[in-house]
C-alpha cells in the first residue's frame, strides 16, 4: 500500500525560450519504510523532485499525496506543519545554524513545540546519542568535523521522530569512511520503519537503497540500463566491503 504518491508532477523554471523543464510528468509511489535512492546526472531534476516531496516547491501540475493528504492543497502554514510532523531533512551542506551548538541545532524543530526546556534538552541529547555524538552537545558546528556535522544534521532530522527522511546528497561533502558511517545510520533508520528518500550522485550510496529511481531530463528512467548496471556494480561492491 502506497504511503507516498506522486502523480504526474510537472515543474518548469523560466518562461518562453528560457523555459527549462525540471520535472516532466513524474509519477511513482513509495511504501512506508521503503529506502529509495534517486539518481541522475546534474540537471536531471532530482533535487527539484526532492524539494517538491519536501513540500517546499509547488509543482506546476500534478499531485503529491502523503497518507492520502493532498500536500499542495494545503495552505503555507499547513505545509509548514506537515514538514514539522512528517519530514526530516538532511542537506548536502549540513545546513546547521552556525551560532547554535549541536544540541541547539537539533532542538530547532522542537522550538515551535509546546514542551519544557528540560524535555527539549532530553530529546536533543537522545537524538545526538543515536548518531554517536553523545558528549558533543555544546560544541558549535565549527568545532566538529564534517562527518559529525552531517550526523548532527541527521539527529536534527530525527528529533521529531518524523515518518519520512529526505536526504539531499548526504555524503556529498564527506570522505569514504564517513560516508559509509552515514549510510549505515540511514540503513538502521530504514530498518526501524522510517521512509527514506535520498538524492545522490554516488552509486555506492545508491546501492544501500532498496529501490532506485533513475532520472533523466525531468523524467523517471527506471529502465535506464546504465543506471541499472551502476546499481548492480555498487551492490556487488557494497556486499564485498561488508
Amino acid at each position: 500500500m502506497s504511503f507516498l504518491r506522486a502523480e504526474n508532477l510537472t515543474k518548469t523554471y523560466g518562461r518562453g525560450e528560457a523555459a527549462a523543464s525540471a520535472l516532466a510528468g513524474v509519477s511513482f509511489t513509495i511504501a512506508q519504510g521503503e529506502f529509495v535512492a534517486i539518481m541522475g546526472p546534474s540537471g536531471s531534476g532530482k533535487s527539484t523532485l526532492l524539494s517538491v516531496l519536501g513540500a517546499l516547491n509547488t509543482p506546476d501540475q500534478g499531485g503529491y499525496f502523503v497518507d492520502d493528504l493532498d500536500i499542495y492543497a494545503l495552505s503555507q502554514d499547513q505545509r509548514a506543519d506537515f514538514r514539522r510532523e512528517y519530514l526530516g531533512f538532511v542537506f548536502q551542506s549540513f545546513n546547521l545554524v552556525p551560532y547554535l551548538s549541536l544540541a541547539e541545532n537539533v532542538m530547532l524543530p522542537l522550538a515551535i513545540k509546546k514542551m519544557s526546556r528540560a524535555q527539549r534538552w532530553e530529546l536533543a541529547g537522545e537524538a545526538l546519542a543515536r548518531v554517536g555524538l553523545a558528549g558533543k552537545e555544546r560544541r558549535l558546528p565549527s568545532q566538529v568535523s564534517g562527518g559529525e556535522q552531517e550526523r548532527a544534521a541527521v539527529a536534527r532530522a530525527l528529533v521529531n521522530q518524523p515518518p519520512i527522511l529526505l536526504a539531499d546528497e548526504p555524503t556529498g561533502n564527506l570522505d569514504q569512511a564517513t560516508s559509509r558511517q552515514i549510510m549505515d545510520l540511514l540503513i538502521r533508520l530504514g530498518s526501524e520503519g522510517m521512509t527514506i528518500i535520498m538524492v545522490t550522485h554516488s552509486p555506492e550510496c545508491a546501492a544501500y537503497a532498496g529501490r532506485l529511481l533513475s532520472m533523466r531530463d525531468g523524467s523517471l528512467a527506471g529502465s535506464d540500463p546504465q543506471a541499472a548496471a551502476a546499481l548492480a556494480a555498487c551492490a556487488a561492491a557494497a556486499a564485498g566491503s561488508a
Binding site: 519536501g54 517546499l56 503555507q76 502554514d77 509548514a80 506543519d81 506537515f82 514538514r83 514539522r84 510532523e85 519530514l87 531533512f89 545546513n95 545554524v97 530547532l108 524543530p109 515551535i112 536534527r156 521529531n160
Partner: peptide
C-alpha cells in the same frame, strides 16, 4: 532552514 524544518 527554519522554514524547511516546519517554522510557520
Amino acid at each position: 532552514i527554519f522554514r524547511a524544518i516546519g517554522f510557520r
